[in-house]
Design a protein around this nucleic acid. Structure first.
Length: 398
RNA sequence: CCGGAGGUGGCAGAGCAGUCAAUCGCUCCAGACUGUAAAUCUGGCGGGGUAACCCUACGAAGGUGCGAAUCCUUCCCUCCGGA
């Protein structure tokens, strides 16, 4: 039986149904990130109340601390963190980039509206060989190895519902580098597939139900993106888009090129992307799933989502900054059109006070708002697609 | 009234003749944040100018120096102790 089914389409935008061992979810969907087996500053029960179905956690971080063995012995990741809904884990491949070249370059990510003009220096915290990646833990400097086989075993042991093939991550945008990188990703992809197959053959239980994403790379090079997409579609039942993009415009172009190459009946996950503008543009092009730290991190850093009628624009990222002095005595909620617990009960003045006072409650209330806001937006998007109103909804935002 | 210690930018507190428009911190102001080393990071914080630079400034007023927030005199004010 197919794990993913497209239920309705409006243009390329689609509503789908994804079945996992921990429940069925409807797409398009945004998945909050809980890197270290915790979506920062919010209780699992509040995530549920908000309507969050699926979260993303991270193999690399969990292998370092507390150790995947520990989690396995305690009954798996779901039980460990008390989350009985779907969990996706990233393979750790991204950390090759984020803790390597990008870290050294002092550059965190990719899509910023700025073009990548400089090469990233060579990775420092990791050493990439054909076998895999040797990391030094960012926690204590001790050495670890990640390879396709190890990454699969770890994700298998964690018991994630959706997992990601171990991939390389380009850190330069020139053709030769990109080409070598996607070839590395492809070799690792095949080993990931084999490895998971072996693991599944060893046990026929629930863990055998894991759905694995292959990751499409290729920077902003159309030819390589297309090649990588075709490869991924050939070998995987689920498509993830990763890598570097440069500008937003280029990212959207790459999404178009990639999705034209992959089966309609496979879920597509746009890794690590999730600003509001990107959600609309991604869905419009046929993306089904997103994950991003934006709502949770922004929340903690004082950046709270607001809808267009409350002043949200692409230019301000559909956010307001709670630190602004004009909110000192503002008794209105963050967004008067929002129905989250925070907006129903607290003023901007209070949130601003909590933020400036570094009160821990701020993080909770802000996170509740931002996650509710995005969840609510995605729900509206799904409902709109079902009645062919997505374009209309989009144009009321962008 | 006597004795002692002080008065520096929003706060607090360095500086004690030139490298001082004035350390550091906090507050404050603005910005960033996209598969989380992020409750983080960046910038600004006397006025003017794109800038070289100019003006006003370290309680007040004088004074000594080429030159003073830094030394001297007087005054004003604050704090501590004693009448």
């Amino acid at each position: 039986m197919k794990k993913f089914k497209v239920l309705h389409k409006e243009g390329k935008a689609r509503v789908g149904r994804l079945e996992t061992s921990h429940g069925i979810v409807e797409t398009p969907r945004f998945n909050p990130v809980g890197t270290q087996a915790s979506v920062k500053a919010i209780l699992p029960k509040d995530l549920k109340e908000i309507g969050v179905e699926m979260i993303l956690s991270n193999t690399y971080h969990l292998m370092l601390r507390p150790g995947v063995e520990v989690i396995k012995k305690l009954g798996g990741l779901h039980k460990f963190m008390n989350w009985d809904r779907p969990i996706m884990t990233d393979s750790g491949g991204f950390q090759v980039f984020s803790l390597g070249g990008a870290l050294e370059a002092g550059s965190s990510k990719v899509v910023s509206g700025k073009k990548i003009t400089q090469d990233f220096p060579r990775p420092r915290l990791n050493q990439i060989t054909d076998e895999g990646v040797i990391f030094q833990s960012h926690l204590d400097g001790s050495k670890y190895t990640l390879s396709p086989e190890i990454a699969m075993k770890l994700q298998y042991d964690l018991g994630a519902d959706l997992i990601v093939a171990f991939d390389d991550h380009e850190y330069k945008n020139d053709y030769e580098h990109l080409k070598l990188s996607i070839e590395q990703t492809q070799r690792w992809a095949l080993r990931s597939v084999d490895s998971l197959k072996k693991l599944k053959s060893l046990s026929a239980g629930r863990q055998g139900q894991q759905l694995m994403y292959g990751v499409v790379h290729g920077g902003t090079n159309k030819e390589l993106r297309v090649r990588s997409a075709q490869f991924t579609d050939k070998h995987f039942e689920a498509i993830a888009l990763g890598g570097i993009y440069g500008t937003k415009t280029e990212m959207y172009e790459m999404i178009d090129y990639v999705l034209a190459q992959v089966s309609d009946e496979k879920p597509r996950h746009l890794l690590g992307i999730g600003e509001i503008e990107d959600l609309f543009n991604g869905v419009e092009r046929g993306i089904d799933l997103f994950d991003c730290v934006a709502p949770t991190r922004r929340a903690r850093n004082g950046s709270l989502y607001i809808c267009p009628k409350s002043g949200g624009r692409s230019k301000n990222g559909f956010t307001l900054s709670i630190t602004l002095s004009k909110f000192r005595g503002d008794k209105t909620p963050v967004d008067r059109r929002c129905s989250c617990y925070t907006c129903l009960n607290f003023s901007k003045a209070y949130l601003r006070h909590l933020y400036l006072s570094k009160e821990i409650l701020y993080h909770n209330l802000a996170t509740i708002h931002n996650l509710y806001f995005i969840e609510n937006l995605m729900r509206q998007i799904r409902e709109a697609i079902k009645v062919n109103q997505f374009n209309k909804l989009k144009s009321s935002w962008l």
